[in-house]
Simulated scan of single mutants.
Amino acid sequence: MALTLGNVHLEKLHTGCRWSEGPAWFAAGRYMVWSDIPNDRMLRWDETDGSVSVFRQPALNTNGHAVDREGRLVSCEHRGRCISRTEHDGSRRVLVSHVEGRRLNSPNDVVVKSDGSIWFTDPTYGIDSDYEGDAAPSEIGASRVYRISPDGTDVRCVADGFVQPNGLAFSPDESLLYVADTGATHQADGPRHIRHFDLSSDGASLSGGEVLARCEAGLFDGFRVDAKGHLWCSAGDGVHCIAPDGTLLGKVLVPEVVANVCFGGAKRNRLFICATTSLYAIYLNTRGATWPAR
């Protein structure tokens, strides 16, 4: 089955950002929220009329976002150096800012598992300079992947050995966790790949970590998975569609460097694309993965 549609074209929905990142779709309200990190704001695109408004500013240089099973926005904050959640009344709650007494680096991307646990990456991009956060030394001294337990009482490292862990996503059945490493930004010949990890039977720990695919056009940053297990990955020339075995199936070419994507729309068959200064979208012949039944 072709995953794209021959008579469908890429649409530009908005422009004027400095670095678009972290799209998250709110089905009940038919709108999407995303980050414009250097401008320290979150924007909101409304599907009902195509309008764009400021969702929050200042926004503590938020990066990646996810929506939990209760419809709340979970955010990675560069300047806040934390994972926060926007409650139903609009208030902001910090879920985690320290691990073993040390401040996080600058959480980058986040996913929520069906059991309510929150998984996120913590590279140093937000503390490397004052452009996307506040320049500061790393207190942890490493860049890792963490898990927050469903009740929020336990935060622990679930994967390390990265240079700069970045985007992450679960397979549709949540048996695998994919994690991008964009370490080529910090090391000559550094990683520009996606690794895949096996989830344990308790759904709380990982094993493996082999490289699934390497990016030959820029870097794999953020990505999302469709219902058939294909990975839709940001890259320097657009969005790469990668099969579960790592085979590159094709590309959606975009005229700007892509940072992240998410599925949305009434049928979850519309891919929203955050690319440098702009927000794009394209309809696909597939749907975004949803949580497994629990």
Rank of each mutant, 00 (worst) to 15 (best):
A2M: 11
L5T: 08
G6D: 15
K12A: 02
C17L: 08
P23M: 05
W25T: 05
A28Q: 13
A28R: 13
R30F: 01
Y31N: 10
W34K: 03
R44T: 13
W45E: 01
D49E: 02
D49P: 02
G50I: 04
S51L: 07
S51N: 09
R56H: 15
P58S: 04
L60D: 15
D68V: 06
G71W: 11
V74T: 09
E77P: 03
G80C: 05
C82P: 02
I83E: 00
R85K: 11
R85H: 08
T86F: 04
H88D: 12
S91F: 05
V99E: 08
V99S: 07
E100W: 05
G101W: 02
R102Y: 00
V110Q: 00
G116M: 04
I118R: 03
D122A: 10
P123V: 06
P123Y: 05
D128I: 00
E132W: 04
D134R: 14
A135N: 03
I140N: 02
I140S: 02
G141N: 03
G141L: 00
Y146N: 05
P150M: 03
P150A: 06
D151V: 01
G152C: 08
V155G: 09
A159H: 11
D160S: 12
A169T: 09
P172R: 14
P172N: 13
D181S: 06
A188C: 00
A188D: 13
G190M: 00
P191A: 02
H193Q: 13
I194P: 04
R195S: 15
F197Y: 15
L199R: 10
S200F: 07
A204H: 15
S207D: 13
G209D: 13
L212N: 09
C215I: 00
L219F: 12
A227P: 04
K228W: 07
H230Y: 14
G236I: 01
G236R: 03
D237N: 13
H240M: 06
I242P: 03
D245L: 09
D245K: 04
G246N: 09
P255H: 06
E256W: 05
V257S: 15
G264T: 05
L271V: 03
A281C: 14
Y283L: 09
N285I: 00
T286Q: 00
T286K: 05
R287T: 10
A289R: 14
T290E: 15
